[in-house]
Nucleic acid binder design. Structure first.
Length: 272
DNA sequence: GTCCATGTTCTTTA
DNA sequence: CTAAAGAACATGGA
């Protein structure tokens, strides 16, 4: 469900309301969602103060006053909901954290029907291990180096979180359309296109952020708000519909087992 | 019943 | 060594 724009929107609707709140009650409703399995979350969290929440790739990293922390990855269907205290638990709610503020208490519900996500206790370890560059902070040089180092289809490279962290199926397809690049183009054939691709990724993500992400099925931010960027998708989910630019029907192919939508007219494979 | 899904990881194959 | 393909995880919607 959530890629960079959605995760960032969740963070934006979450942290301002929870900054410097105190962890109170901890209810682990599904212990196998919390890793590592051996920890005692109420002991680790109780009485600590939430100092910061940041995003790295698709991960949300929570930092406490004792310099310990944890991360939440929402997988495909994970949802974080900020609710009044004693809110009813929806189905598939795996964790409920109660946070105390000067004038009220709030509950943070973590639900995830498919359970592809996870809650991971970090202790004092960093939460960004294994992740590549942030797409909104990446220089043209950094992108060009990544492109040059691989012959994989550009779609595969952009989905690889250890290369670039935060893009998923929607925003890769949308970025490649904006850049006019065919998803099967070998990455190393695109080093000249690094400036254009970097800009396309940037513009796609910034526009998606302005629209608070894409709500296709059930993505909502921490306050239950839906995104609207899905209305502006150029290719994702638009198989057989006319390209918004040239009216050619959008095509769908499989790359890495993922649906990949593109305009065969606007996105050329380079000819050798 | 079928196919598909905003993600990641592991194994197998080439 | 590289990377693609396929399966796996688990649930729900069309």
């Amino acid at each position: 469900m959530p890629e960079l724009p959605e995760v960032q929107t969740i963070l934006n609707t979450l942290f301002p309301r929870l900054a410097d709140s105190v962890f109170d009650r901890v209810e682990v409703l599904r212990p196998d969602y919390v890793h590592p399995a051996a920890i005692c979350l109420p002991e680790l969290l109780g009485g600590r103060i939430l100092r910061n929440v940041s995003r790295r790739g698709k991960r949300l990293i929570f930092t406490l006053n004792d310099s310990n922390g944890f991360l939440i990855h929402l997988g495909m269907t994970g949802r974080l909901s900020l609710l009044p205290s004693l809110a009813p638990r929806g189905p598939h709610t795996h964790l409920v954290l109660t946070l105390r503020l000067p004038n009220e208490s709030l509950e943070l519900h973590l639900s995830d029907p498919r359970r592809f996500g996870e809650f991971l206790w970090l202790g004092d370890r960093p939460g960004d291990t294994g992740l590549g560059v942030e797409p909104l902070e990446m220089s043209t040089r950094q992108l060009a180096d990544l492109l040059l180092a691989s012959r994989r289809p550009i779609k595969s490279l952009l989905l690889d979180q250890s290369a670039i962290a935060g893009l998923g199926n929607i925003y890769v397809d949308e970025s490649l359309f904006r850049a006019g690049i065919h998803p099967l183009t070998p990455a190393n054939a695109l080093s000249e296109s690094a400036p254009r691709l970097r800009l396309a990724i940037r513009q796609t993500l910034l526009k998606a952020l302005r629209h608070r992400g894409s709500t296709l099925r059930d993505y909502v931010d921490a306050e239950g708000g839906k995104g609207s960027f899905q209305r502006l998708h150029a290719v994702y989910g638009r198989e057989r519909l006319p390209c918004r630019v040239c009216r050619t029907p959008i095509q769908r192919i499989l790359i890495l087992g993922r649906s990949t939508c593109f305009c065969p007219q606007c996105q050329h494979l380079p000819t050798y």
